[in-house]
Design a protein around this nucleic acid. Structure first.
Ligand SMILES: [Zn+2]
Ligand SMILES: [Zn+2]
Ligand SMILES: [Zn+2]
Ligand SMILES: [Zn+2]
Ligand SMILES: [Zn+2]
Ligand SMILES: [Zn+2]
Ligand SMILES: [Zn+2]
Ligand SMILES: [Zn+2]
Lengths: 348, 348
DNA sequence: ATATCGCCCCCTCCCACA
DNA sequence: TTGTGGGAGGGGGCGATA
DNA sequence: TCCGAGCCCCGTCCCAAT
DNA sequence: AATTGGGACGGGGCTCGG
């Protein structure tokens, strides 16, 4: 098969770039002796690669967006169709071609390198000089969902416990929520799980097929919807749901939330949809009547671990919410709120 | 904190979706007894979830894009602000909300489910009916680069040996290319690598700094360039280079190719740029004279493993290309081609 | 390394009933 | 009218794993 | 489970020497 | 003029570690 490089002219080079801007050679080029070595080292660019006349050329990391295709012969670095440098916008690209920063006529303020052109085929090279060389959005999965600019290293380092939460100890006992739940007698009260901790069976609709999930899996074919809203970011370093504008600090949290819109877990009995498999699992117990969680004190069984926990608290009847003005206590925040909002007139 | 669901009206449901279209109840709803069970099973939709009057309602997996917010009370499935169904575009969403397929007025040709609305807050729900419900591109990094529609399960499953290649046995020996290279005497001929198989040192310019890489790492701050060209896809399931329009089957292959435009690997000696570190590594040996690969037959050393392989072949001088008309053999395809194109007149 | 799963936790809302 | 217990569910966080 | 680094292999172009 | 061997790359596939 024909290489596209053939369009580049005779002795088309491989896809490498010689390290230098190049001056029109006087004549008689053709041997490697034109590559004079030596010259003073640049503080940032290091050793020069060529010395031509009174100019010294260094390698650099830049790519210019002029669209002018300057070809360099493979062995000698002699430019073909070279014209003297013109004013141009220089885009600093990262390794993946993302345009980072633009500079007019020369040194980038970030790294102060010199400009060399992108090695583009003719067609693509003829873009208008003002445009960055076809920048695209950052690669991450973030962009198509909402906000890109993935977390920087510093932000990633700070992703420990959320400072907004503080240390949130258990309201009743003061224990940290990560400890195993014990009742007031300090017995480990919750029974082991009924379902063995194996992988869940696929969540199936009534047809037995699994609902499409897996971000990476996609049925092919249909025209791909394109982003028609500009991806402006709401708050820096936040991930915003495109459905309801809620913001999240992590991509994972946003994905979790998005499931609350798509509700991918369907009950095979009644068809109700849920955001997460274990929510469906709990719902299914309302069909089967299964109640895996039993109170060790009174023997009453529950389908929901949370509700057993709430029941457990009734055995030790502590009133947790107290009115600041009358000292009356309530078992629920809602009752206390109602009490206070209706005006606490009398004492307890 | 206030839940956004409060805007949904009295008895706002949780974030689940009842499994059914719903008819305006006659009156007196309010108890679970309205949920009549029974009814015939639908071949695909399974058991009906409600029977109202003479209509039977099934769960489904669809989401309509009308933007009309129809709310369903938690326990009874009674719609609020419900109006009778209107013609609408129905978008089949996948679990992550990607619009997959549009159908006018009803059943999707793919799964033939019925439509239920996305559970959207009022603001997002007021989008124009013709638009898909805020679709976004597939999650992968694909979108910002070029074409997404990542591989389906089937395509992924077929990602073994490329069917385009067939079984490509070694031209000389017929061995599969994955076997270690052996010479004609069947000795393992290639020496072990000189460089220990540790991680490469960072590719550094003369300043010792590494060129920016790592798709995920992003310096914060600068305005993010947005796609201003509509992301139309060239060929389905292909990834197209935005610089030269070459297409690739995998995102990784495209990224690899893009490096041939950005040429991020710079030789610290002469500044020449390469697309990949090991290409630079091989180039650097042209400066140092290092030749790690030695022929076990004649002792000649090579800097390039491929060239040793080519040399190895010269020890067993087999002519691999033969003219079909005159049976003359050539060592290179180019020589045979020239022979044939210039007209094979004489015999061998 | 990243995404997901199963599980944890705490929460809220609703209802029947005392 | 107020209060209580239970049913049902939403959703963030975490550790192990795919 | 996904992605990229190293590594493999094959292939190409050019050139100097037969 | 034709052929050969070698130098220098380009680039896709594979595997394994993070
Ligand atoms: Zn949302
Ligand atoms: Zn159900
Ligand atoms: Zn009990
Ligand atoms: Zn009070
Ligand atoms: Zn390209
Ligand atoms: Zn070099
Ligand atoms: Zn040899
Ligand atoms: Zn012939």
């Amino acid at each position: 098969m024909k290489s596209p490089n053939e369009a580049l002219g005779p002795r088309a080079p491989g896809k490498t770039r010689e390290a230098t801007e190049w001056q029109e050679p006087a004549m008689g080029m053709g041997t490697a002796s034109h590559n004079k070595e030596g010259g003073e080292s640049h503080p940032r660019l290091g050793l020069p690669t060529f010395v031509t006349g009174d100019q010294t050329w260094f390698k650099n990391k830049h790519v210019s967006g002029t669209g002018r295709n300057r070809l360099v012969s493979e062995r000698l670095g002699v430019p073909i169709n070279f014209t003297s440098p013109k004013p141009t916008v220089t885009w600093h690209l990262d390794l993946n071609g993302t345009a980072r920063q633009a500079e007019i006529n020369g040194a980038c303020s970030a790294c102060r390198g010199l400009a060399v052109p992108l090695l583009l085929p003719d067609k693509a090279a003829s873009s208008t000089p003002g445009d960055p060389p076809l920048p695209w959005d950052r690669t991450s999965a973030v962009c198509p969902i909402s906000l890109p600019l993935p977390l920087t290293e510093e932000a990633r380092g700070a992703s420990g416990p959320d400072p907004l939460e503080g240390s949130r100890a258990d309201l009743w006992t003061g224990r940290a929520p990560s400890e195993p739940l014990k009742d007031s007698l300090n017995h480990l009260n919750l029974p082991p799980l009924r379902v063995p901790p194996t992988r869940w069976p696929p969540i199936a609709g009534p047809d037995g097929g699994q609902a499409p999930d897996r971000l990476q899996a996609a049925p092919g074919g249909l025209g791909r919807p394109h982003c028609h809203k500009p991806c402006h970011l709401r708050a820096p370093r936040c991930f915003t749901c495109r459905f309801c504008d809620k913001e999240y600090a992590s991509l994972g949290a946003l994905k979790m939330h998005i499931r609350t819109h798509t509700l991918p877990c369907l009950c095979s009995v009644c068809g109700k949809a849920f955001s997460r498999p274990w929510l469906l699992q709990g719902h299914i117990r309302t069909h089967t009547g299964e109640k895996p969680y039993t109170c060790s004190h009174c023997g009453r069984a529950f389908a929901d671990r949370s509700n057993l926990r709430a029941h457990l608290q009734t055995h030790s009847d502590t009133k947790k919410y107290q009115c600041n003005s009358c000292a009356r206590t309530f078992s629920r925040m809602s009752l206390l709120a109602r009490h206070e909002e209706s005006g606490c007139r009398r004492g307890p």
